[in-house]
Structure formats: structure tokens, C-alpha cells
Design a binder for these strands. Structure first.
Length: 200
DNA sequence: TATACGATCACCT
DNA sequence: GGTGATCGTATAC
């Protein structure tokens, strides 16, 4: 099939649904006419202000404002002073939920990715949220930008890859142990056996 | 104004 | 398994 850019309607659904359905879709950064891309193999859902692991759980701030806006916008933030994490805003406007994209299976522009990642081997290029932002040259300039407009250079495509429910593993989210019972929820999803998944 | 720390990674033992 | 790198943000004075 012809690749089809995901629309706002796709993202305007619950974060958990979007997180599951993003598996097998292709994340694309079109940079100076060249594409850097990979198949999404790992995601996490952050389901709203009631979710104590979600940055929006302490209310609307300058940083989290994007999550309270319409679906289909990128939420990019810096973590530990070194890395960026890429999220896509989901759900209805006013409900602060998002999906963290955690790992990719590199497809287009692997040479460029290797340069951006300091000459690492294929499975180390994008097997983690910080790594994939480096590999796709994503930084905070994308924060608040739309992923669904025709002119967007960072977007997600449906390339017709079918993912069966039995290929999807549900697990606890990574690095949110402080979130009490929310840390135990199975809101992390990844493709079974894929070598690019960050942690098994 | 000051301080503590995080949705990570790479490199060490 | 443990730790250091390094900075924006939130929260406390």
C-alpha cells in the first residue's frame, strides 16, 4: 500500500489505544529532502493528570502545556540534561495524555543515523527514547509542533505493516518507580522478540 | 535566588 | 550492579 500519514483523528483517542496502534507504524523525519525513519517497536502510554507517572499529574505548567492542547502535537522535553524524549499528544483537547515513543527499528537514512549516533551499530541506533531522538536529529524545536499537518517534517506513517495482538507484549513502564500503584500498570507495549526494544 | 532531581545512556567493575 | 555526565523545570525558601 501507499504510505499514509496519520491524521489528527488517529491521535484523538485514549493514549493506551494509540500506544498499541503505533506499534508497526513508521516515524519519519524529512530533513532537507532526505528521510530518516524507523518502525516504532516500543511505546508507553501516559494517560492523564490522574496518572502519577505523567508529567501533567501536577497540573498545567509551562513545560506540560502542550499535553493539554489538541491531539497530534509533539511533546519533546529534555531529560537528565543530555537527552530528549519524543511524545505525541493524544485524547481530547483539555485532557493531558500522551504516548512516549521508546524505540525504533531503523529503516531509511541509517548512514545519517550512524553519524548522529557516533558510529554505533544498527541495534544501538534507536533502541531507547534518548537514542532515537539523537538518531533522528530531534530536539526541543519540535515541541508543540503538529505531526499531522501537510507541511510537518516530523510525522508518522502507516506503511501497511500488520501487527497481530499476540506479537504485542504489555509491561510496566520504565523509570517511574516513584509513581506508586501507577508504576505497576501495564502501559508499556513492545513487539515481542524485536532486538531494538530498549529493555526486556 | 537556591536547590534537588528526572519517562536516559555509556562506560565502569 | 553502579555511577557520572549536565541542564531545564518545579518547588521551596
Amino acid at each position: 500500500m501507499k504510505p499514509k500519514r496519520l491524521s489528527k483523528d488517529f491521535f484523538a483517542r485514549p493514549a493506551k489505544t494509540v500506544a498499541v496502534e503505533l506499534l508497526g507504524k513508521k516515524l519519519v523525519h524529512s530533513q532537507d529532502g532526505r528521510r530518516i525513519s524507523g518502525i516504532i517497536v516500543e511505546t508507553e502510554a501516559y494517560i492523564g493528570s490522574e496518572d502519577r507517572a505523567c508529567h501533567a499529574s501536577r497540573g498545567k505548567t509551562k513545560r506540560t502545556a502542550v499535553m493539554f492542547g489538541p491531539a497530534g502535537a509533539w511533546y519533546v522535553y529534555m531529560i537528565y540534561g543530555f537527552y530528549y524524549c519524543l511524545n505525541i499528544v493524544t485524547g481530547p483537547s483539555g485532557h493531558a495524555s500522551a504516548v512516549l515513543i521508546r524505540a525504533l527499528d531503523p529503516v531509511e537514512g541509517r548512514g545519517r543515523m550512524r553519524t548522529l549516533r557516533g558510529g554505533r551499530t544498527d541495534r544501538e541506533l534507536a533502541s531507547g527514547p534518548g537514542k532515537l531522538c539523537r538518531a533522528l536529529d530531534i530536539d526541543k524545536k519540535f515541541n508543540g509542533e503538529s505531526a499531522t499537518e501537510q507541511e510537518s517534517v516530523l510525522f508518522i506513517e502507516d506503511v501497511g505493516l500488520k501487527v497481530e495482538p499476540r506479537q504485542i507484549v504489555k509491561a510496566r513502564r520504565i523509570g517511574v518507580d516513584y509513581a506508586g500503584c501507577w508504576a505497576k500498570r501495564l502501559l508499556r507495549f513492545y513487539l515481542k522478540g524485536n532486538i531494538n526494544v530498549s529493555k526486556f
